[in-house]
């Protein structure tokens, strides 16, 4: 096991700093939204985590394809790292969304396209870990994992489109606003600053966590390999 690279140590410190700054911007710097009150401040982290959550799932599907074509275990480690970190972030997104929805939509949960797609995506990736747990052979585990992330990555956007046929009340803050959306608002300059900084901050934290998870994966593989050698 090589020692921790210096860049990673720096990234750790930077992650903590940007998280702190993002929290400051979201909680103190950004003005209070007049209609919804303080709960709107949840929005900055909600979108930040949602962004890296989605990014991770897309990266995982790409890593899956890369693994299937190259059969290089490093892609498998990357894929697991991306899925695991994204599942964690997506969980935060859903919880934050739910907390925001309670005062604004007057309900914890509604079967809106975004919410449903988020829930389904989360379930797909929980199933992903159950699948991996059931397979002992690391090579087969990697293959099946790659195939499943690929399927998941393809079905999630179609799920979104299908559920949109039913109805939506989720606000679209960036881009055009649906007439039925409830709880939308327009951002002031300070809000934008907080918003974009939180996107940036979570991207940094995401990279940092993935890096750590990949290193953990490497260690896992090494231990598994040694165990196999010993048992022979």
């Amino acid at each position: 096991m090589q020692s921790k690279p210096i860049v990673l140590s720096i990234l750790d410190v930077v992650s903590i700093i940007v998280l702190g700054v993002a929290a400051y911007l979201a909680l103190v710097f950004a003005p209070t939204e007049l209609v919804m009150g303080d709960v709107q401040r949840v929005f900055y982290f909600h979108v930040g985590t949602a962004w890296v959550g989605l990014l991770g799932f897309i990266l995982a599907a790409i890593a899956g394809i890369a693994y299937l074509t190259t059969k290089d275990m490093k892609w498998d480690r990357f894929e697991v790292a991306a899925v695991e970190v994204s599942t964690m972030f997506f969980f935060i997104t859903i919880v934050l969304g739910s907390i925001w929805a309670r005062p604004v939509w007057n309900t914890w949960w509604t079967w809106d396209p975004r919410l449903t797609t988020a829930a389904v995506t989360e379930l797909i990736y929980i199933a992903y870990f159950m699948l991996r747990q059931g397979i002992e052979d690391p090579e087969k585990r990697a293959r099946f994992g790659a195939v499943y992330t690929l399927l998941g990555g393809l079905s999630a956007p179609i799920t979104f489109m299908v559920i949109r046929l039913f109805r939506t009340i989720h606000p679209v803050v960036i881009g055009s606003q649906s007439a039925e959306a409830q709880g939308g608002f327009s951002m002031t300059t300070d809000m934008r600053t907080a918003f974009f900084f939180s996107l940036f901050a979570f991207t940094i934290i995401f990279i940092d966590l993935i890096w750590h998870r990949i290193r953990l994966g490497r260690l896992q593989d090494k231990v598994e390999e040694l165990k196999l050698n010993l048992s022979l």
Binding site: I124, A127, G134, I135, L151, G152, S155
Partner: peptide, 17 residues
């Protein structure tokens, strides 16, 4: 290892659309 139990768990979320 978990075969029969696993299929619906794998299939339903992907087949939702």
């Amino acid at each position: 290892r978990t075969r029969d139990v696993l299929l619906p768990i794998l299939l339903f979320p992907v087949a939702i659309p």
